[in-house]
Design a protein around this nucleic acid. Structure first.
Lengths: 224, 224
DNA sequence: TCAAAAGTGTTGATTCTACACCCATGG
DNA sequence: CCATGGGTGTAGAATCAACACTTTTGA
């Protein structure tokens, strides 16, 4: 048997910052799809694990170093790459863009965050990968506490609220949401308040990381 | 870049029949792990999709032809195969063993259903694949109607109950379960009863397939 | 004093859980 | 008449969804 299938990995990195959800894309430097936007990714090397590969590729192409990406799905249609047979294992993750510096290198002509409501045309089958990733992210956050590490160390409650309604793409009931979240005991109320901004100053909260990670591991049902 | 990674697929096929949950395994004919049991699977051909590959391999090795397997996870640790680098995309499915004939062929010296509580030693990392598959199956069935096609055309309610408690590996409350299930309106009560067997004869039910598949597609929360 | 955002409770509906006794049949 | 499995209801607890007015601050 002569197999000539190439294996690649792709990283769908979502960014969340003050109410905007975005995805990190690169502009391809080479054919195929030269000049078009794509999800960062590349070929797996012989001796590295898939996780290592996806982290390496992400770093090489965008400068991003993040340490947790979750496997999403493996895309293997024979014609998804116009030249060779390439099967790709897609991963996804969620970060806070401002905490990282991004820069184009190797195969990328440019790197950019795109608002997920204003996406360009994507290369290959990357639109379906992205669609699936969004789906999964939204699904996941309804049963697992997720993404709290995206907020500042101390934050007003409205930040989480915005985070959730942005990622879910729909409004959530402020009172019910607060009640629910507080009942999990993962937020410690501080004695400080927000100082500037119009309107009444808000109490600041902080995560109780221990309990947060415990909940996450237990896979507790969140049910937002 | 010289990539020499081989891509394979594996099929975790669960069987359910009258209270017993089993998995289909093959006995390997060749090295590595010659003579040991393994999950059926094999290399993906250049022109076939992953789904085609997993179906073909399953058929070649076990004689089974089933038309729906769901992607589970992709296993890619560099040392999971002692000889070459092999990345494997695992799938899983659930069938009724008696409705199919199985027989060993190609790479398999034997094919056999194993009760999932009495598993032999498995080749490669197949034990972790299997563990993940069981997990996923159990998880899935709590939020999606699943596996009803495993029952006879007409069946007493206790059959579903047994199906669920076997697959979940725990007892379920008979009354609450019946209430819940009936509330979904996917079961039509017939005017027939079971005839033989000791004890009071049971009413027979039949699926309302339309509604069943609709529910399934909608991904309705099942919450058993 | 106005605008802006924060904070806060209740009620009725629904759903969940736990739990035990009688029924119909065949042997 | 006994053994076997089938069938059924309730009550209290918990959770959910819907909903609007008051408070604090800065401008």
């Amino acid at each position: 048997m002569q197999q000539s299938i190439q294996l690649s990995v792709d990283a769908v990195v979502f960014g969340y910052e003050s109410g905007t959800v975005s995805v990190l894309l690169i502009k391809r430097k080479y054919e195929p799809f030269k000049g078009q936007w794509a999800i960062p990714g590349g070929f797996v090397l012989n001796k590295e694990s898939l996780e290592e590969a996806v982290q390496r590729e992400l770093k090489e192409e965008t400068g991003l170093e993040i340490n947790y990406l979750e496997q999403l799905y493996t895309f293997g249609n024979p014609d998804r790459d116009p030249r060779n047979r390439v099967v790709s294992v897609a991963y996804f993750g969620l970060i806070k863009p401002s905490a990282f510096k991004i820069f184009a290198s190797t195969d990328a002509e440019a790197v950019q965050w795109f608002d997920i409501n204003e996406l360009p045309n994507l290369s290959f089958d990357h639109d379906s990968i992205l669609k699936l990733a969004i789906n999964r992210l939204q699904n996941k956050m309804t049963y697992e506490p997720i993404g709290f590490e995206l907020l500042d160390n101390k934050f007003p409650f409205s930040d989480i609220e915005k985070l959730y309604s942005s990622l879910l793409g729909r409004a959530i009931d402020r009172r019910n949401f607060r009640k629910k979240l507080l009942s999990f005991n993962i937020l410690d109320e501080l004695n400080e308040k927000t100082s500037k901004g119009s309107g009444r100053p808000a109490k600041l909260f902080k995560f109780n990381k221990k309990r947060y990670f415990k909940l996450k591991e237990e896979g507790i049902i969140f049910d937002i």
